[in-house]
Design a protein around this nucleic acid. Structure first.
Lengths: 110, 110
DNA sequence: TAGTTATATTGCAATATTACAATAAACTTT
DNA sequence: AAAGTTTATTGTAATATTGCAATATAACTA
Protein backbone atom coordinates (compact mmCIF):
# COMPACT_ATOMS: atom_id res chain seq x y z
CA UNK A 1 0.00 0.00 0.00
CA UNK A 2 1.01 3.62 0.37
CA UNK A 3 -0.43 5.15 -2.77
CA UNK A 4 -3.41 7.45 -2.65
CA UNK A 5 -6.62 5.71 -3.72
CA UNK A 6 -7.68 8.36 -6.19
CA UNK A 7 -10.06 6.02 -7.99
CA UNK A 8 -12.48 6.06 -5.10
CA UNK A 9 -13.06 9.78 -5.17
CA UNK A 10 -14.81 12.13 -7.56
CA UNK A 11 -12.98 14.03 -10.28
CA UNK A 12 -13.76 17.28 -8.47
CA UNK A 13 -12.33 16.01 -5.22
CA UNK A 14 -9.20 14.84 -6.95
CA UNK A 15 -8.79 18.09 -8.85
CA UNK A 16 -9.06 20.16 -5.72
CA UNK A 17 -6.70 17.85 -3.89
CA UNK A 18 -4.16 18.14 -6.70
CA UNK A 19 -4.35 21.93 -6.73
CA UNK A 20 -4.12 22.18 -2.96
CA UNK A 21 -1.30 19.71 -2.75
CA UNK A 22 0.64 21.75 -5.28
CA UNK A 23 0.53 24.78 -2.99
CA UNK A 24 1.14 22.57 0.01
CA UNK A 25 4.82 23.42 0.19
CA UNK A 26 6.29 26.71 1.40
CA UNK A 27 8.70 26.91 -1.51
CA UNK A 28 5.81 26.69 -3.94
CA UNK A 29 3.87 29.30 -2.00
CA UNK A 30 6.97 31.49 -2.21
CA UNK A 31 7.23 30.91 -5.96
CA UNK A 32 3.60 31.90 -6.52
CA UNK A 33 4.05 34.98 -4.37
CA UNK A 34 7.21 35.94 -6.20
CA UNK A 35 5.55 35.56 -9.58
CA UNK A 36 2.71 37.70 -8.32
CA UNK A 37 5.08 40.36 -7.02
CA UNK A 38 7.21 40.75 -10.10
CA UNK A 39 4.08 40.85 -12.23
CA UNK A 40 5.93 40.92 -15.48
CA UNK A 41 6.69 37.29 -15.65
CA UNK A 42 10.16 36.35 -14.71
CA UNK A 43 12.10 33.21 -15.40
CA UNK A 44 14.38 31.86 -12.81
CA UNK A 45 15.74 34.66 -10.88
CA UNK A 46 13.58 32.60 -8.62
CA UNK A 47 16.70 30.59 -8.06
CA UNK A 48 18.35 33.76 -6.73
CA UNK A 49 15.31 34.47 -4.60
CA UNK A 50 14.88 31.15 -2.87
CA UNK A 51 17.26 29.24 -0.61
CA UNK A 52 17.08 26.12 -2.72
CA UNK A 53 19.24 24.63 -5.42
CA UNK A 54 18.35 25.05 -9.07
CA UNK A 55 17.23 21.47 -9.68
CA UNK A 56 14.98 21.61 -6.65
CA UNK A 57 13.31 24.76 -7.90
CA UNK A 58 12.96 23.33 -11.36
CA UNK A 59 11.14 20.42 -9.80
CA UNK A 60 8.81 22.67 -7.82
CA UNK A 61 8.05 24.66 -10.97
CA UNK A 62 7.21 21.44 -12.75
CA UNK A 63 4.75 20.47 -10.05
CA UNK A 64 3.07 23.85 -10.12
CA UNK A 65 2.81 23.59 -13.89
CA UNK A 66 1.43 20.08 -13.81
CA UNK A 67 -1.21 21.17 -11.34
CA UNK A 68 -2.19 24.06 -13.61
CA UNK A 69 -1.13 26.85 -11.30
CA UNK A 70 1.56 28.35 -13.49
CA UNK A 71 2.46 28.28 -17.15
CA UNK A 72 5.76 28.75 -18.92
CA UNK A 73 6.67 30.21 -22.28
CA UNK A 74 10.02 29.63 -23.89
CA UNK A 75 11.67 32.95 -24.56
CA UNK A 76 15.05 32.64 -26.12
CA UNK A 77 17.13 30.42 -23.92
CA UNK A 78 15.15 31.33 -20.86
CA UNK A 79 11.64 30.36 -19.83
CA UNK A 80 9.09 32.88 -18.83
CA UNK A 81 6.91 31.52 -16.05
CA UNK A 82 3.77 33.14 -14.81
CA UNK A 83 0.67 32.40 -12.81
CA UNK A 84 -2.13 30.52 -14.51
CA UNK A 85 -5.24 32.38 -13.47
CA UNK A 86 -7.61 29.49 -14.03
CA UNK A 87 -5.98 27.39 -11.31
CA UNK A 88 -6.04 30.16 -8.73
CA UNK A 89 -9.62 30.90 -9.71
CA UNK A 90 -10.69 27.32 -9.02
CA UNK A 91 -9.16 27.45 -5.56
CA UNK A 92 -10.66 30.84 -4.86
CA UNK A 93 -14.13 29.69 -5.87
CA UNK A 94 -13.98 26.44 -4.00
CA UNK A 95 -13.03 27.99 -0.69
CA UNK A 96 -15.38 30.91 -1.17
CA UNK A 97 -18.27 28.49 -1.69
CA UNK A 98 -17.19 26.44 1.26
CA UNK A 99 -16.95 29.42 3.56
CA UNK A 100 -20.26 30.68 2.27
CA UNK A 101 -22.08 27.44 2.94
CA UNK A 102 -20.54 27.37 6.39
CA UNK A 103 -21.73 30.90 7.10
CA UNK A 104 -25.27 30.06 6.04
CA UNK A 105 -25.34 27.03 8.28
CA UNK A 106 -24.00 29.18 11.12
CA UNK A 107 -21.71 26.32 12.02
CA UNK A 108 -24.19 25.04 14.56
CA UNK A 109 -22.11 22.32 16.12
CA UNK A 110 -19.62 21.38 18.80
CA UNK B 1 17.94 15.23 2.71
CA UNK B 2 14.23 14.92 2.01
CA UNK B 3 12.66 17.07 4.66
CA UNK B 4 11.00 20.34 3.80
CA UNK B 5 13.17 23.35 4.66
CA UNK B 6 10.47 25.22 6.55
CA UNK B 7 12.99 27.44 8.35
CA UNK B 8 13.77 29.34 5.20
CA UNK B 9 10.25 30.52 4.60
CA UNK B 10 7.98 32.99 6.34
CA UNK B 11 5.43 31.95 8.95
CA UNK B 12 2.64 32.97 6.57
CA UNK B 13 4.03 30.87 3.77
CA UNK B 14 4.37 27.89 6.05
CA UNK B 15 0.88 28.33 7.46
CA UNK B 16 -0.68 28.45 4.04
CA UNK B 17 1.36 25.48 2.90
CA UNK B 18 0.25 23.49 5.94
CA UNK B 19 -3.42 24.31 5.37
CA UNK B 20 -3.22 23.55 1.67
CA UNK B 21 -1.31 20.37 2.20
CA UNK B 22 -3.98 19.21 4.61
CA UNK B 23 -6.62 19.44 1.88
CA UNK B 24 -4.19 18.02 -0.62
CA UNK B 25 -5.68 14.54 -0.46
CA UNK B 26 -9.00 13.48 -1.96
CA UNK B 27 -10.03 11.60 1.17
CA UNK B 28 -9.59 14.76 3.20
CA UNK B 29 -11.52 16.79 0.65
CA UNK B 30 -14.25 14.18 0.92
CA UNK B 31 -14.22 14.39 4.71
CA UNK B 32 -14.57 18.18 4.65
CA UNK B 33 -17.39 17.93 2.12
CA UNK B 34 -19.15 15.28 4.18
CA UNK B 35 -18.89 17.36 7.33
CA UNK B 36 -20.29 20.29 5.40
CA UNK B 37 -23.16 18.23 4.04
CA UNK B 38 -24.32 16.69 7.28
CA UNK B 39 -24.06 20.08 8.94
CA UNK B 40 -24.91 18.81 12.39
CA UNK B 41 -21.54 17.47 13.20
CA UNK B 42 -21.13 13.79 12.86
CA UNK B 43 -18.55 11.46 14.22
CA UNK B 44 -17.34 8.63 12.18
CA UNK B 45 -20.11 7.51 10.06
CA UNK B 46 -17.40 8.91 7.87
CA UNK B 47 -15.95 5.45 8.03
CA UNK B 48 -19.17 4.17 6.44
CA UNK B 49 -19.04 6.92 3.87
CA UNK B 50 -15.49 6.51 2.61
CA UNK B 51 -13.76 3.55 1.00
CA UNK B 52 -10.97 3.53 3.53
CA UNK B 53 -10.28 1.59 6.68
CA UNK B 54 -11.02 3.09 10.08
CA UNK B 55 -7.40 3.67 11.10
CA UNK B 56 -6.71 5.43 7.81
CA UNK B 57 -9.62 7.76 8.35
CA UNK B 58 -8.62 8.39 11.93
CA UNK B 59 -5.24 9.43 10.61
CA UNK B 60 -6.73 11.78 8.03
CA UNK B 61 -8.95 13.33 10.70
CA UNK B 62 -5.89 13.90 12.85
CA UNK B 63 -4.13 15.71 10.03
CA UNK B 64 -7.12 17.92 9.36
CA UNK B 65 -7.32 18.70 13.05
CA UNK B 66 -3.61 19.47 13.33
CA UNK B 67 -3.87 21.83 10.40
CA UNK B 68 -6.78 23.62 12.05
CA UNK B 69 -9.41 22.68 9.49
CA UNK B 70 -11.64 20.64 11.76
CA UNK B 71 -12.23 20.32 15.48
CA UNK B 72 -13.52 17.46 17.58
CA UNK B 73 -15.54 17.31 20.78
CA UNK B 74 -15.77 14.19 22.86
CA UNK B 75 -19.39 13.21 23.21
CA UNK B 76 -19.85 10.05 25.19
CA UNK B 77 -17.80 7.34 23.64
CA UNK B 78 -17.99 9.01 20.24
CA UNK B 79 -16.28 12.13 18.97
CA UNK B 80 -18.15 14.89 17.27
CA UNK B 81 -16.08 16.37 14.49
CA UNK B 82 -16.90 19.50 12.60
CA UNK B 83 -15.35 22.09 10.37
CA UNK B 84 -13.21 24.77 11.94
CA UNK B 85 -14.33 27.94 10.25
CA UNK B 86 -11.12 29.86 10.94
CA UNK B 87 -9.04 27.51 8.81
CA UNK B 88 -11.38 27.62 5.84
CA UNK B 89 -11.56 31.38 6.22
CA UNK B 90 -7.79 31.72 5.96
CA UNK B 91 -7.75 29.72 2.75
CA UNK B 92 -10.67 31.65 1.36
CA UNK B 93 -9.04 34.99 2.07
CA UNK B 94 -5.67 34.01 0.76
CA UNK B 95 -6.93 32.83 -2.60
CA UNK B 96 -9.40 35.68 -2.89
CA UNK B 97 -6.59 38.18 -2.38
CA UNK B 98 -4.40 36.34 -4.80
CA UNK B 99 -7.06 36.24 -7.49
CA UNK B 100 -7.85 39.87 -6.84
CA UNK B 101 -4.26 41.01 -7.23
CA UNK B 102 -4.04 38.98 -10.42
CA UNK B 103 -7.17 40.59 -11.79
CA UNK B 104 -5.82 44.07 -11.07
CA UNK B 105 -2.57 43.28 -12.81
CA UNK B 106 -4.55 41.93 -15.74
CA UNK B 107 -2.10 39.06 -15.87
CA UNK B 108 -0.06 40.84 -18.50
CA UNK B 109 2.38 38.12 -19.31
CA UNK B 110 3.17 35.16 -21.47
C1' DT C 1 32.68 27.07 -33.10
C1' DA C 2 33.81 27.56 -28.25
C1' DG C 3 32.06 29.47 -24.27
C1' DT C 4 28.22 31.13 -21.55
C1' DT C 5 23.62 31.13 -19.69
C1' DA C 6 19.22 29.03 -18.47
C1' DT C 7 16.67 25.15 -17.55
C1' DA C 8 15.68 20.17 -17.28
C1' DT C 9 16.82 15.43 -16.22
C1' DT C 10 18.96 11.66 -13.80
C1' DG C 11 20.27 9.26 -9.91
C1' DC C 12 20.38 8.94 -5.28
C1' DA C 13 19.74 9.55 -0.18
C1' DA C 14 16.76 11.11 3.45
C1' DT C 15 12.34 11.65 4.94
C1' DA C 16 7.26 11.78 4.72
C1' DT C 17 2.83 9.96 3.45
C1' DT C 18 -0.68 6.54 2.72
C1' DA C 19 -2.92 2.49 4.00
C1' DC C 20 -4.12 -1.26 6.88
C1' DA C 21 -4.21 -5.24 10.40
C1' DA C 22 -3.90 -5.76 15.05
C1' DT C 23 -4.52 -3.93 19.26
C1' DA C 24 -5.50 -0.63 22.89
C1' DA C 25 -8.31 2.77 25.29
C1' DA C 26 -12.56 4.72 26.76
C1' DC C 27 -17.11 4.86 27.17
C1' DT C 28 -22.13 2.52 26.97
C1' DT C 29 -25.27 -0.78 27.36
C1' DT C 30 -26.98 -4.99 28.92
C1' DA D 1 -18.99 -7.17 35.16
C1' DA D 2 -19.32 -8.68 30.32
C1' DA D 3 -20.10 -7.39 25.82
C1' DG D 4 -20.46 -3.99 22.47
C1' DT D 5 -19.29 0.57 20.26
C1' DT D 6 -16.26 4.17 18.91
C1' DT D 7 -11.94 6.06 18.19
C1' DA D 8 -6.84 6.16 18.63
C1' DT D 9 -2.34 4.03 18.50
C1' DT D 10 1.24 0.95 17.02
C1' DG D 11 3.77 -1.41 13.74
C1' DT D 12 4.77 -2.24 9.15
C1' DA D 13 4.85 -2.22 4.07
C1' DA D 14 4.45 0.38 -0.12
C1' DT D 15 4.95 4.52 -2.25
C1' DA D 16 5.78 9.53 -2.74
C1' DT D 17 8.19 13.75 -1.78
C1' DT D 18 12.10 16.69 -0.98
C1' DG D 19 16.60 18.08 -1.99
C1' DC D 20 20.91 18.10 -4.30
C1' DA D 21 25.22 16.96 -7.17
C1' DA D 22 26.23 15.76 -11.54
C1' DT D 23 25.07 15.95 -16.02
C1' DA D 24 22.39 16.91 -20.15
C1' DT D 25 20.00 19.98 -23.27
C1' DA D 26 19.08 24.13 -25.63
C1' DA D 27 19.76 28.67 -27.01
C1' DC D 28 22.38 32.71 -27.11
C1' DT D 29 26.99 35.32 -27.52
C1' DA D 30 31.48 36.36 -28.75
Amino acid sequence: MGATKTIHFTAEQNTLATLSKAIGHPARVAIIEYLLKVNTCICSDIVEELPLAQPTISQHLKELKNAGLIKGNVEGNAICYCIEEAGIEKLKNYFADLANTLAIQKNQCC
